[in-house]
């Protein structure tokens, strides 16, 4: 039976975003611009399309963040996030 690739947890953003920020992105808290839900990026729902990872809001499914690993550098679109908050103590990264 063929089925749609199932989504993963925001945790899997750590690889594509490794080295992009000094903090581990999966423990950064973000606010959805669309519905205002506040959650750690690790709790978002990620569709790991081979063209780029698409992280969606766990509450309203709006696109929060898109990570594309271009050959000339990783590119991150964050238009769906109102803000990000770093944890006081950042995790391993």
């Amino acid at each position: 039976m063929e089925h749609a690739p199932a989504p993963l947890d925001g945790n899997c953003l750590a690889g594509p975003l490794a080295g992009f920020f000094t903090a581990d992105v999966t423990v950064v808290t973000g606010c959805c611009r669309h519905c205002g839900d506040v959650a750690m990026m690790g709790a978002s729902v990620v569709y790991r399309h081979p063209m780029g990872a698409v992280a969606r809001c766990r509450a309203c499914t709006a696109v929060l963040l898109v990570v594309v690993e271009h050959p000339d550098g990783t590119r991150v679109g964050m238009a769906g996030l109102a803000w990000w908050r770093l944890p006081v103590e950042s995790g391993p990264g």
Binding site: A14, G15, P92
Partner: peptide
């Protein structure tokens, strides 16, 4: 190999 990765599910 890229990692170790992810600080949320730990």
């Amino acid at each position: 190999v890229r990692g170790p990765l992810g600080g949320y599910f730990v």
